[in-house]
Write a protein that binds this DNA or RNA. Structure first.
Lengths: 122, 122
DNA sequence: TCAGATAGGGATAATTTTATCCCTGTAAAT
DNA sequence: ATTTACAGGGATAAAATTATCCCTATCTGA
């Protein structure tokens, strides 16, 4: 993936969690997969903003940690499907809690961000 | 802080949460502050790995979002104390849930990371 | 008077994460 | 025969985040 020069301290559970779901597209990919979007091309259609390349990288990391699994069908043209593992399922409540908290703050958050963008205005 | 070039989509609660606590030292700072470590210099002593500069930046962002507050005592030498706001308190359960999940996976995680480091070994 | 503690921040470098570009291969359809 | 859909990845650039270095100011104590 990428050889880190500054070692992280994984004695903290929080840091461990972040290592696993802390990629730009990972939480969204998990959401999609848990909602039945399984094939790489379908996932890409749902997240056209990201490149296939980038999605592949994030999927590979999720797979590395056993959050998702990958079924490769011996067909041509290629056919691949991702699925949430039981371990991955155990993550959903946590992600939902995070999303819920953030959702509650969203409105106020947007107000704040607006002020940041427009300090004096031209 | 830093003028971003690629706009983020904050319509998602998860993204909002990440914007708030997604800094390298922020969760740990929150933990410390919620446990009574209030003054900048004390926080730095607890996190000597980070520079005062960096801690200040992260603290400023937490303050910006109303997670923590700052009391400036009109004394010399300067005296500053941070505290968790009520809003910040509401974040603790979420952070705890995250930490708990990661803590449960920690052991297995360490095993995985070891293999990553030592593919074939010299 | 000089070191050390308090708190803060500008300028810039290093690190880490994402994005972009382009290439491989096969089968079905036009 | 050329295009399209499928899946995957190397090389490299850009963006974002952290880290490093150094300077300001005031008061206390040696």
């Amino acid at each position: 993936m990428y050889e880190k020069k500054i070692p992280k301290d994984f004695s903290c559970g929080f840091t461990v969690l972040m290592e696993i779901i802390g990629g730009k597209w990972k939480p969204y990919l998990l959401f999609l997969i848990s909602n039945g979007v399984r094939r790489p091309s379908d996932l890409h259609r749902k997240v056209p903003t990201a490149t296939r390349r980038v999605l592949n990288l994030q999927l590979k990391e999720l797979e590395f940690h056993g959050i998702i699994g990958k079924k490769i069908y011996a067909e041509l043209p290629p056919h691949v499907e991702y699925y949430l593992t039981d371990f991955g399922e155990s993550l959903l409540p946590v992600i939902n809690a995070m999303d819920a908290w953030g959702g509650g703050y969203k409105h106020q958050f947007e107000q704040l961000m607006l002020r940041k963008q427009v300090p004096g205005e031209a």
